[in-house]
């Protein structure tokens, strides 16, 4: 043998092998993460089956062995047994620690930016009862999410009304979509195809109809799809029109001359110094807050003169504006 399997890999292969006969009981596997979650699940199913059968077996065995009226040795039944009790407290403890770390490892991966960064950011707005998906460089979709295979995609999500949840069983991921804040998810699909998207947080009458499909394409097909859709207008273009029509450029644009308000080109993702000490990162949450509640985190050196836009733009327009701001590069 050229290279020996590490015990970890051996366990991994064993779990994958054990899963094979039960493939019909698993959703399609669309990512490495999904594969990892399945293996973890198989481990837990195996462990649970073992303990359930152990307990059930002991109960049945004792119930038969010590059935009333049946001859058996019942002299001095033990009232406790320290060694036994230490064992059956320690075994669950050790298993719990293993499960905790295994689960935490899979979880933290969902919050960690992949090496090399995200290939693309897509904005998702949930509203009763539909998903609106906006590609900065492409079209707006309703009830569908197109994405390229093999490239890490980050979803930035919010809700126009109540709490929803963007759930993709094929990727084994979901996240609540909460009004008033942005939550995010990322994934990297390993094959092409169409997979269901569900709303998984109860959101009212047609909760069960708030469906969508995830369409994974080859990067080339995706690029073609994006370009075709872009002809009808992109989120960035919509954001630019909003920027103009709301008169943002009067202070923030080139003609504002950076006197009354900060220049916005290149600001996205950067730390900005605040009037009230400290810094804020100019991410989606900060930009949204500053548009709706401009007085909260004023950039150092500027007077708090910006009017609020709360009530004037909805969440879809907000993500268009953000897509536009994000696209602005320093000249």
């Amino acid at each position: 043998m050229k290279d020996m399997l590490s015990p970890w890999q051996a366990l991994w292969e064993l779990l994958r092998w054990a899963k094979r006969p039960f493939a019909a009981l698993f959703p399609p596997v669309l990512s490495e993460h999904a594969d990892g979650v399945d293996s973890f699940y198989m481990f837990l199913v195996g462990m649970s089956t073992f303990f359930s059968l152990l307990i059930a077996g002991l109960i049945v065995f004792f119930a038969v062995r010590y059935a009333r009226g049946r001859k058996a040795d019942r002299t001095r039944p033990p009232e406790s047994n320290l060694v036994l009790e230490i064992v059956w407290s320690t075994v669950p403890l050790v298993l719990s620690v293993v499960i905790f770390f295994w689960g935490a490892r899979l979880y933290l991966r969902l919050f960690t930016e992949p090496l090399g960064g995200y290939g693309e950011v897509v904005y998702v707005v949930g509203k009763q009862w539909m998903w609106k998906v906006q590609h900065p460089q492409g079209p707006m979709e309703i009830g569908a999410l197109h994405a390229p295979m093999g490239i890490p995609i980050r979803l930035v999500m919010t809700s126009q009304d109540v709490i929803h949840d963007f759930s993709i069983p094929a990727l084994r991921i979901k996240r609540d979509v909460v009004p008033g804040r942005y939550t995010s998810l990322w994934f990297q699909a390993t094959r092409t195809g169409e997979f269901p998207i569900y709303c998984s947080e109860y959101c009212g009458t047609l909760h069960s109809q708030m469906l969508g499909k995830l369409v994974i394409q080859s990067p080339a097909a995706y690029a073609a799809w994006l370009a075709q859709g872009a002809a009808a207008g992109t989120a960035i273009q919509a954001g630019e029109r909003l920027f103009t029509s709301l008169g943002c450029g009067g202070c923030h644009g080139a003609e504002g001359g950076a006197i009354r308000a900060p220049q916005l080109a290149g600001i996205f993702g950067r730390p900005v110094p605040l009037q009230s000490d400290g810094f804020a990162t100019a991410d989606e949450a900060y930009l949204r807050e500053s548009i709706l509640f401009p007085g909260r985190k004023v950039v150092a050196g500027y007077a708090p003169v910006m009017p609020t836009f709360a009530g004037q733009i909805n969440e879809e327009q907000m993500v268009e504006l953000i897509a536009y701001l994000r696209s602005l590069r320093l000249p």
Binding site: V37, L44, S48, F51, S52, I55, A56, S96, I99, R172
Partner: peptide
């Protein structure tokens, strides 16, 4: 209760709960 308790271990495991919660 044994089965109920053991499946609780699945749900308390962060990375797996992401898939299982709300299902």
């Amino acid at each position: 209760f044994t089965i109920g308790g053991l499946t609780g271990l699945f749900l308390a495991a962060l990375g797996l709960d992401v898939h299982l919660t709300d299902t």
